[in-house]
């Protein structure tokens, strides 16, 4: 599903060498669930952005489900992301101007096959927010926001779900619930999951754990 080869990624502004990521080969099988751990600043977020196509490597191949993202134009990468990738952020990044239901709908607005009437409501009911459809994100608790972000990431029926410290802002109980929900849904729908985290307990819930530093 995921195949990275000879990846080099550096940020020109970095004082030292500037190299953030540099490794030869990394694969994740379809339906695999990988926890990405590493020191702060080790490049976890950068790696997720490479997988989503938001950031391009200096060199190397980022192949997702047989598609080499580097071969696509930026617009095509955007379309690929819209169609096949779900993304959950640490601070959830819900859009303030839109209701809970609309935020979830935005997960598929740019994808092929949109609109999918009823799917947003279904997803919100599944995460226990069926009664909060018309609320605005700021009217929700942080735990509820996490569920909305999760529902939004699933809206386009992604093949690959990327999560950047999805439990980082949550208390212990909420974190466990959201994580369990995420992993179970992914398993049921055969979605490949890559999740960056600091938390070893979170990492332990995944099939496998990869330390970014070890990739290098």
């Amino acid at each position: 599903m995921i195949h990275l080869q000879n990846i080099h990624k550096s940020y020109p502004s970095d004082a030292d060498s500037g190299l953030v990521l540099g490794f030869e080969d990394w694969r994740v099988a379809r339906g695999g669930q990988v926890a990405l751990i590493g020191e702060s600043g080790s490049g976890k977020t950068t790696l997720l952005n490479l997988l989503s196509g938001l950031v391009q490597p200096d060199s190397g191949i980022v192949s997702i489900d047989g598609t080499d993202l580097a071969q696509l134009s930026e617009a095509q990468r955007d379309r690929f992301r819209a169609d096949h990738i779900g993304y959950v952020f640490q601070s959830f990044h819900l859009l303030d101007g839109y209701s809970v239901k609309e935020n979830v709908e935005l997960g598929a607005v740019f994808a092929k096959g949109h609109p999918q009437p009823g799917r947003a409501v279904e997803l919100l009911e599944a995460v226990g927010l069926g009664h909060r459809l018309q609320h605005m994100p700021r009217q929700l608790s942080v735990g509820q926001q996490a569920r909305v972000a999760f529902a939004r990431a699933l809206m386009n029926r992604p093949k690959l779900l990327l999560a950047d410290e999805p439990t980082g802002a949550l208390d212990y109980e909420n974190g466990k619930q959201v994580l369990a929900m995420l992993l179970q849904t992914a398993r049921e729908s055969n979605i490949t999951v890559v999740c960056a985290t600091h938390d070893m307990e979170v990492a332990a819930a995944f099939e496998s754990t990869v330390r970014v530093e070890d990739l290098q």
Binding site: E74, A75, D78, R81, Y87, H93, L95, L106, F110, R152
Partner: peptide, 16 residues
């Protein structure tokens, strides 16, 4: 900016 960035992450093109 953050809103535009989120839309990009959801698959919006720059032209959108």
């Amino acid at each position: 900016r953050r809103e535009f960035a989120i839309l990009r992450a959801l698959g919006a093109r720059r032209s959108t």
